[in-house]
């Protein structure tokens, strides 16, 4: 452990932090490569929608009769729960992050701290999931994928995403200043 040695950030490429622009450039190129090879941009939430689909089916519901899954996201109906394109990409992301975290020995179980954290996490998650279904994707699928595919919905999503995020930030700032400060 390096303690109290001043600015001790590891400079090694595999362990130290990368500049933002380099990360953005590489992610952009990977996104383009994905598009070239699979004819489908990088997306995250459709893999998670598949989990919801299977969960509801397992609980005895009939999501296969919903118009959304029949008409818009129909490849969800027959795909394997783990070995489908969206999920493999998501799980790859999880393991890629784990590899990076472990290589730089930054892994640490971070427990919950407050009850309000839990509430805002669940509420935020539900809002994100709902919003992502209405807008056909998250930041990656709708904003990056949409605008880069020159679809109008990407631009509309981006503008309102900005408004929503600003409102959310103002709310969080208000909460922190009022309740959390000593």
């Amino acid at each position: 452990m390096k303690q109290g040695q001043g600015k001790t950030i590891n400079k090694h490429v595999l362990i130290g932090p990368w500049p933002y622009w380099a990360g953005a450039l590489i992610l952009g190129l990977l996104n383009v490569l994905l598009f070239v090879i699979f004819k489908k941009p990088w997306g995250v939430t459709s893999g998670i929608a598949k989990w919801g689909f299977d969960l509801w089916e397992g609980l005895g519901g009939h999501p296969e009769s919903w118009a959304y899954f029949r008409e818009i996201n129909s490849d969800i109906l027959s795909s394997h729960i783990f070995f489908n394109q969206a999920n493999i990409l998501n799980m790859g992301l999880v393991f890629g992050v784990m590899l990076a975290v472990l290589l730089s020995s930054h892994f640490r179980i971070k427990r919950l701290k407050t009850r309000s954290q839990l509430i805002s996490a669940i509420a935020g998650g539900i809002m994100m999931g709902y919003g992502a279904r209405l807008a056909f994707g998250c930041n990656i699928g709708a904003l990056i994928g949409g605008i880069a595919s020159q679809s109008l919905h990407g631009w509309v999503f981006g503008v309102f995403l900005f408004i929503g995020a600003s409102l959310g930030t103002l709310f969080v700032r208000y909460y922190v200043l009022k309740k959390r400060l000593p």
């Binding site: 452990m1 390096k2 040695q5 590891n10 892994f107």
Partner: peptide
């Protein structure tokens, strides 16, 4: 400011 990477995730 100074940043210390304590190498245990903190």
């Amino acid at each position: 400011f100074e940043i210390d990477d304590l190498e245990n995730g903190i």
